[in-house]
Amino acid sequence: MSLLNRQYSMLPGFRLAFGVSLFWLGLIVLLPFAALIVSTAGMGWGAFAHTLADGRVLASIRLSFATSLCAALINSAFGLLVAWVLVRYSFPGRRLFDAMIDLPFALPTAVAGIALTGLYAPSGLIGQWLEPLGLKVAFTPLGIVVALTFIGLPFVVRTVEPVLQGLEKEWEEAASCLGASRWQIARRVLLPTLLPSLLTGAALAFARGAGEYGSVIFIAGNIPRVSEIAPLIIVAKLDQYDLHGATAVAVVMLAISFVCLLLINALQWRVARRHGVGR
């Protein structure tokens, strides 16, 4: 108790609850992380550099983050649109669609993967219409973007929705009474208020997308240097018992994700501060 410098509370059970939490956290999360750090520290720069010098590895890391960024951008635009429509308008099926937004959270990634492949393969439901147009989706980076858009869809919608609900209509009306056009209102009033939550949603979608595996490997086709994602490289290296190589790729991915999240957090903080939105 003195160790944790806990303030006295008459509620019981802190030691028990804290003990259980710490034990479980240590066993499930901290110990594996420690294993990763110890392995990384033990393998030395040589093995690290050797793995990363491989063009195939570099290409896969670049592909994972680039496709994830694309999907996050698509989701920002369409997520905002969907949240707006769901919050502001009423139309038949609105509640059904609202409930369905969480489907990508609930649907196992492998199922999403084969279903999307079934749709976009050259013989698939959508693929057969795109094929004659010369547009190939499945087994190309475009397919990866499609899968990651599916996976990241709920993030933006679910973070923007509550803010949009809380936004007072009077505020908008006041702006329009001051002679602002619809476009000006959207750009000068709505967007700045929604921006922090939009960024949060996009960041979550991006982070999730960069590490996504199950939904991507089916539709990607996994062609080296073209549509092979970084998590797949890790799996492949593990299959060849190349633990060092797998660890190196994993650490680089974690580091990049971490830096991206830090940058986005900083950006978010600045946006929120500039527009005086308490966060």
Binding site: A34, G211, E212, Y213, P231, A250
Partner: peptide, 18 residues
């Protein structure tokens, strides 16, 4: 929240390493 921000594959790898 950490497990949310780790790729599932990396999570698996950590258990293999451990």
């Amino acid at each position: 929240d950490l497990p949310f921000s780790v790729s599932p594959v990396v999570a698996g790898l950590m258990y293999v390493l451990l």
